[in-house]
Design a protein around this nucleic acid. Structure first.
Lengths: 203, 203
DNA sequence: GGCTGGCTATGTCAAGCGTCATATTCTACA
DNA sequence: TGTAGAATATGACGCTTGACATAGCCAGCC
C-alpha cells in the first residue's frame, strides 16, 4: 500500500518535530528514521518539506483532540483536563523527556527553507501558513475544553478564559518538564488547575 | 571597547533566538543583524555557537528576572505577576508578535551542530548543558515568584505549585499569542491567574 | 505478452552552515 | 615612539540541507 509509506513519513515527521523542533528535522532524517524511501518524498509531498510539516502538524493535533473530545464528552471537563495532562505525561515519560509538543515547536520556531531564492522575502507566507495551522490546532483544543465547561454551566467568557489557561499552562509545563527532565511541574500544575476548574464548576 | 562588540553579539543572538529559535539562528546572521565583525566570533566565543547560545540564554534570563525580582519585592506577588505578563505583552506587541521567549525555544528545540564529526553521538552533552541552563532560568523565575508568595503567607508546597503555574502558563500563552497574532490569550490568562493568586493570598 | 502509471532508488546541484587559518588594523602601555 | 597583543577582516574547508532529474521496479489491465 502506498499511503502506508506516506502515513509513516507523516508520523515520523511529527515525532521528530516534537523532539527536535521544525528546523532540526530534516527530510533525510525522517526517511532514515522511518525506513521509508527517500525518493518517494517528491511523490507524496509535491510541495516538499512545507507540506510534510503541515501534514505532521494536523496529525499531531488530531492525536490529541481525539481522546480529549471523547473524554470531555463522556466524563466532563475535569476528567478531560486529567486526561489531557496524563497524555502529555505519558509522552514525556515514554521518551525520557525527549519529546514535547510539535505544535508548540511550530509556534516557537520560525521555519526557514534553505532552497528558496533571490526574492526579497524568504518565505513569509509559508511561515504564516504554519502559524495559522498551529493556531487552529490550539483553538481546536481550546474549543473542546470550552464546550465541556459550557455544558457544565460555566459562563461563556469565563469558559473561554479557563480553556485558554488550561491549554496554555499545559503546553508551557510540558516544555518546562523537558528542560527539568522531571514530571513534577506537570503534577503541580495539574493540581492547581483541578482546583480552579472544580471551583468554577461549583459556582 | 571590545566587550561592546561582544555584548551586541549576545543581545542580537538572544533577539534572533526569541524570533526564530535556536537552529534557525546562524552566527552569520547574528553578525549581519548586529553590524558586528564576523571575525570576532572566534575571539569572543572560543567555544563557538554553543557558547554564544549559552550567553544569550543567561542574558535573556536576567532581562526578565531583574524587573521581576524588583517588583515582587517592592510591590508583592500580584504586582509581580502583572509585570511579568505586561513584560511579555510588550515584547509581543513591539515586535508584532514575532518575538517570543528564547528560553522556551531552547526547551522546545534540540540544538544540533553541523560541524561535529564521526563520534557515534552528535552532541548530547552540549544539548544537556543548554537544557540545564534553561531549567535553571525557569527555576530562577519560579523561585522569585515562590519567595513573594511565601512572604505573603502562602504555605510552601502551595507556593511552589502556584509559582510553577504562573511561569508555565505565561510561557505557554506567549507562544499561543505568537501563533494567533493576538494578545487576547495573555489577557485571559492574566485575569484567571490574578484570581487564583489573590484567592490564595486571602486565605 | 506488453504497456502504463504509481512508486522507488540514486545522484547532482547550489546554497548555507560552523569552524579554522591567515592577514590586517587598532590600541594601550613602556 | 615603538611594539606587543587584542580585535577585526576575509577566505577556504568540509559538511548537510532541500530540491530536482533520471532511471529502475512492479503491480494491474488491454
Amino acid at each position: 500500500m502506498s499511503s502506508d509509506t506516506r502515513a509513516k513519513m507523516v508520523a515520523g515527521a511529527a515525532d521528530l518535530m516534537s523532539r527536535r523542533g521544525v528546523n532540526a528535522t530534516s527530510m533525510r532524517e525522517v526517511v532514515r528514521h522511518t525506513g521509508t524511501p527517500r525518493g518517494s518524498i517528491g511523490h507524496h509531498f509535491p510541495r516538499g518539506k512545507q507540506q510534510l510539516i503541515e501534514d505532521a502538524l494536523v496529525f499531531a493535533g488530531k492525536q490529541v483532540s481525539g481522546p480529549l473530545q471523547h473524554l470531555t464528552e463522556t466524563r466532563g471537563a475535569v476528567a478531560g483536563l486529567r486526561a489531557f495532562i496524563a497524555l502529555w505525561r505519558g509522552t514525556l515519560e515514554r521518551t525520557e523527556f525527549q519529546a514535547g509538543c510539535s505544535v508548540l515547536a511550530v509556534a516557537v520556531e520560525q521555519y526557514v527553507n534553505d532552497a528558496t531564492e533571490k526574492d526579497s522575502e524568504p518565505d513569509e507566507a509559508a511561515q504564516q501558513h504554519l502559524l495559522d495551522l498551529a493556531d487552529g490546532i490550539f483553538a481546536d483544543w481550546q474549543r473542546i475544553m470550552f464546550t465541556a465547561l459550557r455544558r457544565e454551566g460555566v459562563a461563556p467568557a469565563r469558559a473561554r478564559r479557563l480553556a485558554a489557561l488550561v491549554i496554555a499552562s499545559t503546553e508551557g509545563t510540558v516544555a518546562m518538564c523537558r528542560a527539568a527532565r522531571s514530571a513534577q511541574p506537570l503534577d503541580d500544575v495539574r493540581q492547581e488547575l483541578e482546583l480552579v476548574l472544580s471551583s468554577a464548576l461549583a459556582k
